[in-house]
Amino acid sequence: MLFRKNVQTMKRDEMIEITQEVQKAVTEARVNEGIVLVYCPHTTAGMTINENADPDVVHDMLLSWDEVYPWHHSAYRHAEGNTAAHLKASTVGPSQQIIIDGGRLVLGTWQGIYFCEFDGPRNRTYYIKIT
């Protein structure tokens, strides 16, 4: 079963937790055992799984990505000026897979699924595929 979801991002760089949306799709699909794939079809956004208990972790991740991939760099050639967003998205990756057991996502105690925006604000789409 495939679900198409929209998300409105509000900042240039942000991580939006979508764990509940993914679990809702699994529940709606009535899948007890399987795999869920969460996929981002954008070249300047991605998906990750990380801590969702302390918001400072998200802050620190975004800060660190900015340090590794500065928004403005004299050697960047891409005319749109969003090379850093492309680099961050490639580092994070476009998708995550999560096991489904007993109709629930198998995530660690502190884990959440995040849509990662690196070139916002934008109206974005992501997909949830359940097998």
Rank of each mutant, 00 (worst) to 15 (best):
A53Q: 12
W65A: 11
T43N: 13
C40M: 07
D119S: 06
L37E: 10
T44N: 06
F115I: 08
W71D: 13
L2V: 11
E21N: 09
P41C: 08
E28D: 11
Q23K: 07
V22L: 03
G103F: 05
T91G: 07
A75F: 11
F3I: 03
A29F: 09
Y114E: 12
N82W: 00
T125W: 00
N32H: 15
N32Y: 15
T91A: 13
Q96R: 14
N50Q: 10
F118R: 03
G81R: 00
D66S: 14
I100L: 05
I130E: 07
A79V: 13
V68H: 05
L87A: 03
T19V: 04
V57I: 07
R30M: 14
Q8I: 13
K5E: 06
V26Q: 04
H73G: 08
G93M: 09
P41Q: 04
T48C: 12
N50T: 14
D13P: 09
T91W: 06
D66R: 15
Q8H: 09
V22H: 01
V22F: 01
Q111L: 11
T44I: 09
P121A: 06
T109D: 10
F115D: 06
H86K: 00
A84C: 05
K129V: 15
A89M: 06
L107I: 12
K129H: 12
L107R: 05
P70Y: 10
T48S: 12
W65N: 09
Y39P: 03
R30I: 14
H72E: 15
H72D: 14
T125L: 05
Q111E: 13
G120M: 05
Y114S: 10
G81I: 01
L107D: 06
G46K: 01
L105H: 02
H78A: 12
D54R: 05
Y76A: 02
H73L: 14
A29E: 06
V26I: 14
R104M: 10
N82P: 01
G103P: 04
E21K: 06
V36G: 01
D54G: 03
H73F: 13
H59Q: 13
V58L: 14
I113C: 09
D119L: 04
L63V: 15
I100A: 01
E17T: 08
Q23P: 07
A25H: 02
I130G: 06
L62G: 05
R124Y: 03
N52L: 08
Q20D: 15
R4E: 09
R124A: 00
G102Y: 09
V7T: 02
L105A: 04
K24I: 11
Q8V: 13
